[in-house]
Design a protein around this nucleic acid. Structure first.
Lengths: 130, 130
DNA sequence: TTGACATATGATCATATGTTCATATAATCA
DNA sequence: TGATTATATGAACATATGATCATATGTCAA
């Protein structure tokens, strides 16, 4: 879907707007060299994509207060247990959460506390008066 | 698609796993009260969703180094000008970028410098050795 | 004014995503 | 053992998304 090919992979074409405004090829080359590499872009986008869903934001929000079992998560997030389980699977795959099993209960907790920071920063940001 | 209804809107049902492990209703109520409200969850998810795409991550990355015209952005990001324009539209709508028009050129720049911080933090995070 | 150019946008299409339903697995209890 | 409970997962479906193509708008140069 999203094109992730690196700019550097694409054969460099003459810039369409080159004639209209001056470019410093050296500066452009320097800029290009300082851009994030493909793998980083992909990883970063992946983390943001996981946080880019209201259900998963709620899950992280709940878990930021401590571990919870699946059914409590479902209840607190306001979604079916099946739906929560699917979402937890995604978060697990990305190592954002971790499971601890006790009998038939599965307790989830944050495995990546960076996301709490991201959530916190973004929350403060969106709550700022514009 | 994503269910965004608040837990509090949903009539409280008896918890399915109530019988299996003890719950402190008071603690649950306190937790519930400290969760993010719907509007915040939606806004936060919206910002993350915009950053959850490799193309847009690249756009923000490029713009974090200074303003660029659309055709340079297209070139640097490695995508068609039409595609870039569509993405810039989304970023504009969310007030993450801003346009400055000069003749037939449109220079885009970051309108929200929080996103650079988010990008930076997440980058450092994904580049950490696990 | 005409034509070339820079950007924007609507329509379309293939693919991705999130939920639901049905079912599977595994643990506990009668 | 058999029934119940907690969680997981596959299939199906509706919707969302991002790219492309065609076209529109606005600007500048000849």
């Amino acid at each position: 879907m999203t094109k992730t090919a690196a700019p550097s992979v694409k054969p460099t074409v003459a810039q369409a707007c080159e004639s209209s405004h001056p470019h410093d090829p050296q500066a452009l080359a320097t800029l290009r060299a300082s851009l994030l590499v493909d793998a980083t872009v992909a990883s970063v986008a992946e983390v943001f994509k996981l946080l880019g869903d209201p259900t998963r934001v709620r899950v992280v929000d709940v878990l930021s207060h401590g571990e919870r079992c699946v059914c409590d998560l479902a209840e607190l997030v306001g979604i079916s247990e099946s739906a929560i389980s699917h979402q937890l699977r995604l978060l697990r795959a990305a190592r954002l959460v971790r499971v601890r099993r006790t009998g038939r209960l599965a307790y989830y907790s944050l495995d990546d506390h960076h996301v709490v920071g991201l959530l916190h920063d973004t929350r403060k940001h969106v709550e700022e008066p514009s």
